[in-house]
Nucleic acid binder design. Structure first.
Length: 445
DNA sequence: TGTCCACTGGAAGGGAGGGCTT
DNA sequence: AAGCCCTCCCTTCCAGTGGACA
C-alpha cells in the first residue's frame, strides 16, 4: 500500500510504503492508579494554545521588516491575476532571513486575491529541493498536483523523463491558468542534477497553448548562478532579490510578535527576548534560530517549574540546541560514515590528532573488518570525509607535505567523548566499545 | 628544475532496487 | 516475464596537484 500526503501548496510531505497497516493503538481511560503522565499534565504551561507560532512551519499574519521585499514579490506576481506570465524571480539570502516565509506569505495572499479579483486561474506550487532534488521528482511533484484521480498519479519512479515531462505539460496546459513554481533551495537541485530541469520548465512556455509557467528560485548560495548555462541564467534571473540578514533590533521585533501569540502574558520579559535576539544576531541574523532559542528556553523554564523564563534558561537552551544538532547529525549518518568518525574519535582518545586521509582510511578499514563489513574504497571514504566536513562534524584541510605527498589533514570538530558516546548507540558499533589505537596506529580490541 | 609522493576529485560506469510497459 | 527507465550507492580509472627534496 502506498500513501502520500500533500500540504496546502500541494507538495508531498509524507510518502510511505506500507506492507501492513498495524499502527492503530486503542486505549481505555481512567484506572485509579496514578499515571506516569499525570505530573506533566497538571503542570501549568507557559505557552498559550498557539504555541505553534514558535515552530518552524508557522506562517504569521504579519512578517516584520520584510514589507518591502513582500511588496516587490507581490508586484511581480500581480500580473498572474491578469492571466499573464510573471517574470521568473531568483531570491538570495542566508538561512533564516525570511525568504521562504515571504514567498509563502505572498502565495497565500495571491490565492486569496485570486478568489476575489482573479481574471485567470493561478496555481502556486511550493517545492523544497532539499528532498525533491532530481528532475524526475520535480516533474512528478508538479504533475501530481494537477492529477486528481489517485490511479492516474505519476509513480515516484519508473517513468522515462520524456514521458513524465509530456504528461505534466499536458495536465498543466489543460488546466488553463498561470502556474507559479517555487523551488526552495534551488542550488541543491542544480548542484545535484544540473540545470536541465530548469531549462525544461522554462522552455515549457514555448509549447504551452493555454497555460503559463513561472519559476521562483530561492537559494542560500549567492554564487549558484555560476553553475547555470547562460540561457537558463538569463531567463531565471529576470528579477533578482537579496534578503539581508536581520539585525538584533529586527530580531527583537520578530520575537516580540511571536511571543505575544505563543507565550502567556508575563512569562517572558524584555531581557530574555533581547538576549535571544542578540545571540541569533551574532550567528548571521538567523530568525529561525532566534525563534527556536526562545521556544526551547520556555520549555526548559516550564520543565523546571518556573513561572517565568530567565536569562540562564536561554543559555541552557543555546547549549542544548548545539548538542542536539551534533547528536542528530551523527545519529543520521550512514553506517560507513559512522565507522570513519569512530576511527577519528579513537585516534583523538589515544592522543593522535591531525590524521591524514591515508591514516584514517587504515583505521576505518580495520574497524569495518572487525565488525564483518566489507570496507569501502578510499575514493568513497574520501567523499564521506568531505560530506562530514560539510556537516561540520570534522574539519578536513588539504595540505601538501612536499615530496611526502598531498593529503587532507582531518580533525574532529566536536568533543570526542560526546561523539563516541552517540556512535556507540548504534547496534553495529557496540562491539567496538573497547577498541583502542596505540601510538603505532594499530588497533586493539 | 625536474622528480616524486600521497593523495584529490572528476568522469564513467556497474549493479541493485523501485517501478512501469508490453 | 522480459525489457526498459530512474535513482542511489559505489568502484574503477586516471589526470592533476603543491611543495619538499635532490
Amino acid at each position: 500500500m502506498h500513501v502520500e500526503q500533500y500540504n496546502d501548496f500541494g507538495n508531498v510531505i509524507v510518502k510511505k510504503t506500507f506492507l501492513r497497516v498495524i499502527d492503530i493503538l486503542t486505549f481505555t481511560s481512567g484506572g485509579k492508579m496514578g499515571n506516569i503522565f499525570e505530573k506533566y499534565l497538571k503542570k501549568t504551561s507557559l505557552f498559550t494554545e498557539q504555541r505553534q507560532a514558535l515552530y518552524p512551519g508557522y506562517l504569521p499574519e504579519h512578517l516584520p521588516h520584510r514589507e518591502r521585499e513582500i511588496d516587490k514579490i507581490a508586484e511581480i506576481l500581480s500580473t498572474a491575476l491578469e492571466g499573464e506570465k510573471p517574470s521568473n524571480i531568483i531570491i538570495f539570502g542566508k538561512t533564516g532571513t525570511g525568504k521562504t516565509a515571504a514567498v509563502q506569505y505572498v502565495g497565500r495572499e495571491l490565492k486569496n486575491a485570486n478568489q476575489v479579483y482573479g481574471k485567470s486561474k493561478v496555481k502556486f506550487i511550493y517545492i523544497n529541493c532539499e528532498t525533491v532534488d532530481t528532475p524526475y521528482s520535480v516533474l512528478q511533484n508538479v504533475g501530481n498536483i494537477f492529477i486528481e484521480k489517485w490511479e492516474d498519479k505519476i509513480p515516484f519512479t519508473g517513468w522515462p523523463i520524456d514521458k513524465i515531462f509530456t504528461t505534466t505539460k499536458s495536465y498543466i496546459d489543460n488546466w488553463n491558468g498561470v502556474v507559479i513554481i517555487v523551488l526552495d533551495e534551488i542550488d541543491k537541485l542544480v548542484a545535484k542534477s544540473g540545470d536541465d530541469i530548469l531549462y525544461k520548465i522554462m522552455h515549457m512556455n514555448d509549447i504551452l497553448k493555454n497555460s503559463k509557467v513561472s519559476i521562483i528560485g530561492i537559494s542560500n548560495e549567492l554564487r549558484f548562478t555560476d553553475l547555470l548555462d547562460a540561457r537558463v541564467k538569463s531567463r531565471l534571473t529576470e528579477e533578482k532579490m537579496i534578503f539581508a540578514p536581520y539585525d538584533a533590533l529586527q530580531l527583537r521585533d520578530i520575537l516580540e510578535e511571536r511571543a505575544k501569540i505563543a507565550i502567556k502574558n508575563g512569562a517572558v520579559g524584555e531581557d530574555v527576548i533581547q538576549l535571544c535576539a542578540a545571540i541569533a544576531a551574532q550567528e548571521h541574523g538567523d530568525a529561525r534560530r532566534a525563534i527556536d532559542l526562545l521556544r526551547i528556553s520556555v520549555e526548559i523554564a516550564e520543565r523546571e517549574g518556573s513561572d517565568k523564563v530567565m536569562e540562564h534558561h536561554v543559555r541552557q537552551a543555546k547549549n542544548k540546541i548545539e548538542l542536539d544538532c551534533v547528536a542528530e547529525a551523527i545519529r543520521t549518518l550512514p553506517l560507513h560514515s559512522k565507522i570513519v568518525l569512530l576511527g577519528l574519535t579513537l585516534a583523538e582518545e589515544s592522543g593522535r590528532e591531525n590524521l591524514t586521509s591515508g591514516e584514517l582510511y587504515n583505521i576505518y578499514r580495520n574497524l569495518a573488518t572487525k565488525i564483518s563489513h566489507t570496507p569501502l574504497t578510499s575514493r568513497r571514504v574520501s567523499d564521506l570525509i568531505t560530506e562530514m566536513d560539510t556537516l561540520g562534524l570534522i574539519t578536513a584541510n588539504l595540505k601538501s607535505f612536499g615530496r611526502y605527498g598531498r593529503t587532507k589533514v582531518i580533525e574532529l570538530a566536536v568533543p570526542w567523548m560526546e561523539a563516541k558516546r552517540i556512535l556507540l548507540e548504534d547496534e553495529f558499533l557496540v562491539e567496538l566499545k573497547n577498541a583502542k589505537i596505540t601510538n603505532q596506529k594499530k588497533l586493539f580490541f
